[in-house]
Amino acid sequence: MKKSIGYISSCGIWIALALAPLVLDEWGVSQFAQYMTYGIFALSLAFIWGQAGILCFGQAIFFGLGAYLMALTTLEKFSWFGGSQAIGLILAVLGPGLAAHVVGQLLFRGRGLSGAYFAIVTLATAVIVEIIAQHWSYIGGFNGLLGVPPLVVIWREGLDAFITPMENYYTIFFSALLIYLALLGMVRSPLGIVLATLKDEEYRTRAFGYNIANLKIIAFTCSGAVAGIAGGLFTTQFGFVSPPLTGFALSTEVLIWVAVGGRGVLLAAFLGAIVVRYIENVLSDTLGSYWLMALGTLFIAAVVVAPRGLFGKLLQLPLPRRFRQFVPKKL
């Protein structure tokens, strides 16, 4: 009976998000669509951090890359694609995925970097990528690129074709749901179970004959691709890209969302992003500059006393039935 709580609350959250536009005004609808976009970004980090124990301090590299690719395509900077949003979104998946794959190949192969070293190297990479973006005039330099068009729908034409807030909401909602289910499927597959073992004692998993580097690279590639989609969807809603999207600050912000929500459970991290962004929106006027202090303190508290985050326990799903036999019964 107790086992089903995770299922019930997880379904409840998706149903609540599906029904949310009924009680939100137009502004609220577009706000929540943006929160969910950050939620997708949080999913990408929770997938590698919570599942495989890879702490990436440069997740925004892939988010920003997706955003830039989407913007460059739809603004016809890549003139040969004719500004196609579909191709933009595809590039926003493939580009960051490929980038993550290359980073993974460089950092995980051989003796490989792990733990803190990986964190610091990715952090430094994010800083450098941001610096490069600031000084590369083709992609807009410091100012970035403005005027990225919103998504268009195929069933209307001309100026009416631009997506309505409600359509946008459900586009993001279903994207998030699909990505969530895909990642959840991976987490609950045999691959995911092996990945989870990397969190504790890597050498044991290696001793069982698994190729650790390959597993990590696969996970990291998927994570990069998901972060890229989030970036691509972000830029269609906000209408701009700029260097901070690739950098250090956003990379650490997403860490906070995931840690506060609950790093071990995908949906908890997703919800963490939504809740933190929502509270920030509500409180940043009243709290002003104290908000970041409060957030920092909340983050410390989450790390020190509640590693499972605010929602980790509530949303934890039981192990897939076929793996349960391997778990020792509690004494």
Partner: peptide
């Protein structure tokens, strides 16, 4: 005893201290 968490906890401290200076 949680090596990775030291990075995160000190990052939180960093955020709070910096903001305190701004305030």
């Amino acid at each position: 005893h949680r090596f990775i968490d030291t990075i995160l906890a000190t990052w939180g401290i960093s955020l709070a201290l910096k903001q305190a200076v701004i305030v």
